[in-house]
Amino acid sequence: MSTSTNSPSASATPSRWERLRDSYMWYSFKRDYTAQLCLAVFICMVIAAFASPLLAPTDPYDLAQIDIMSSELPPFWIEGADERYSLGTDAQGRDLWSIVLYGTRVSLLIGFGAVILQALLGVTFGLMAGYLGGRVDTILMRLADIQLSFSTLMVAIVVGALVKATMGSAFYSQYAVMMLILIIGLAEWPQYARTVRASVLAEKNKEYVDAARVMGLRSKRIMFRHVLPNTMSPIFVISTVQIANAIISEAALSFLGLGMPETHPSLGSLIKSGFDYIQSGSWWITLIPGAVLVVLVLSINLLGDWLRDVMNPRLYKG
């Protein structure tokens, strides 16, 4: 595939951009204002989150910049606000706007990391189960069944709790990001495995797989180079939903105190720390991170809805 971007018409091999422009996906995206809005919001949030050191007026991780005297200040539209803190401050006196930016970055990092881990595990196991069949299939799918019957959130909470109890709080909070990625990744791989297995079963008896086998290719190569590319569209669709789920799971774990520590908070731990002060009237400490979380998850979910309608794979239900 050449990368000549300036070919005037589709007479020659179309470039990537042209193929995208002519695709049904682009057509449907152009007409769907909700999807456009959601993508825009999502991209803005990702950029803002990862550019947080540049955008945030203060560094919330730097203890020298925190002043306990200016704690629980309200956001700018309420009387008594301090003009230095546009969205107010939390109970420790950290600027809420800065800490929400940093928190969104942590949440996104864990969400993406966990989904990549899930996808690696789930796709590998799903391919193996579907393509190799037999005993491998039985064992892997029984494992997935059992894990799913316990609900992924339950598995994550229990594993998180046990890991924290075994390793001690100090160690756990030091490696919290890695731990959360690991826990959420391990808890949710069956979703991928089942989806991939279902589409592998549909693909496996097609002639191109037979052809590859007759050519004498090893099964590993057939699985990853021939079958896998044809199971990509359901993987894309569930990936969006899984990112949203992973972000919510992370928030839930942090809310229970099994996630990010308050010194390096994610959106979930910000909501948790703010909840202790809601009875005293400081609703913004908990509800502003909450609103950010909802907007983030909602835009991902709506994008996922759109993607499912466009790609329309027969997804595993439930």
């Binding site: 609703w283 509800l287 909450g290 979380l293 909802v294 998850v297 909602l298």
Partner: peptide, 22 residues
């Protein structure tokens, strides 16, 4: 309903507390 799916259960609870209890 899609907004409902996107709101974590503890956040719904907090919002309900803010509106109906506080």
């Amino acid at each position: 309903s899609i907004i409902g799916i996107s709101i974590p259960v503890f956040l719904t609870a907090i919002v309900l507390i803010q509106i109906f209890a506080i």
